[in-house]
Design a protein around this nucleic acid. Structure first.
Length: 307
RNA sequence: CGCGGGGUGGAGCAGCCUGGUAGCUCGCAAGGCUCAUAACCUUGAGGUCCUGGGUUCAAAUCCCAGCCCCGCAA
């Protein structure tokens, strides 16, 4: 059971294994997306259909009809990765070998919807994936296995996500046989070190230039590629949203939000502590551009105040 | 009919409201300058202003129709 790319990657990994038989995929119903709000299948559905798997798309996982349907499949084990709905106890207790969840943090840290983003936001140097036996709480189940990875300076949520998805798929595939054969003793999550990673909202991506450059740098990386960190470009009529894609902290200082310099390296903007060098960005209703491309068509004089 | 922006030399943009010589930054080419540079100076090449129709003495600009592109929507 799962919905976005993370789950699709895990599913692909499981499909490559000859020792499991996958009997069905469960994912969220097709949602309207794209320029004309047409219905689009989730990444998991796309992969599942390609593999010829039956696909279930319950509007509500707690509906009795769906639970019955699931029961009739009599799965030995259910794996869950970013499914997007809370599973009722009836489903958690349905398979003899339980429901296993792939979570992209080192539990008990960063329980919740956006562990990858929060790890970057909080300047963590290490994160990872955890396979746990699901219980009724939010990411509170017993731990079966974990794997770590460092967060690199050039990581953003996309690159970290991709890496963790691959690791998660592999770890899940390796963990299942050991779990089913009884080689793994579930470890309760320690009470210490619990933290939460709530959903991020679009407006959380707004850059507050009075904050230190390193903090803003983390915010930009955490919000890339979605929903994007942004600031405002003062305009003739209305300020325009300016999404910041790539930036790096530099050892200079200037008044917060003020463009200090613009050259071939990028656009240097003062922060509360230090400065940020913007390397690529995107104006409202336009595509992503390098700083050089952007500057070719926009004056953006030094002294311009963003925000 | 989900909301919005746009199509102007190779790239990014201005010009359109208020019709009248095609403009800016960058790139490219040639020459110059410099110990030197993703430096600087000079000169140059390169454009059916998306397409079709309409209005007009005159349309990149105004009107109608069409095609294409992009952003937002998790």
């Amino acid at each position: 059971m799962g919905t976005p790319d993370l789950a699709a990657t895990c599913l692909e990994n499981l499909l490559r294994r000859a020792d499991f038989q996958i009997i069905a995929a469960v994912t969220q119903p097709d949602r309207p997306r794209g320029r004309n709000l047409q219905l689009h299948p989730s990444p998991v559905k796309t992969i599942a259909l390609r593999a010829g798997l039956p696909v279930l798309q319950p509007e509500r996982a707690r509906d009795e009809a769906f639970i019955q349907q699931l029961r009739s499949l009599s799965p030995d084990l259910i794996t869950v990765a970013a499914f997007g709905q809370i599973l009722p106890r009836a489903i958690l207790e349905l398979p003899p070998h339980a429901c296993l969840n792939v979570h992209t943090s080192l539990l008990p840290k960063y329980r919740g919807a956006a562990p990858i983003q929060w790890a970057i936001l909080n300047d963590e140097s290490i994160t990872g994936v955890t396979i746990m036996k699901m219980d009724a709480g939010l990411d509170t189940g017993d731990i079966l296995s974990r794997e770590q990875t460092p967060i690199q300076p050039d990581d953003d949520s996309q690159t970290l996500h991709d890496r963790l998805a691959t690791m998660g798929g592999n770890l899940l595939s390796r963990t299942i046989p050991d779990w089913v054969s009884g080689k793994i003793a579930p470890q309760p999550q320690p009470a210490d070190g619990v933290s939460h990673a709530p959903k991020i909202r679009k407006e959380d991506g707004r850059i507050d230039w009075t904050q230190p450059a390193r903090t803003l740098w983390n915010r930009i990386r955490a919000f890339t590629p979605w929903p994007g960190a942004f600031t405002y470009l003062p305009g003739d009529a209305q300020p325009q949203i300016l999404k910041l894609w790539e930036a790096a902290p530099v050892a200079e200082s200037g008044p917060p939000g003020v463009v200090m310099r613009r050259d071939k390296n990028g656009i240097t903007v003062g922060c509360g502590d230090g400065a940020l060098l913007i390397r690529s960005l995107q104006k409202q209703a336009s595509r992503r551009m390098t700083a050089g491309e952007f500057l070719a068509g926009h004056e953006l004089k030094p002294g311009t105040k963003l925000g």
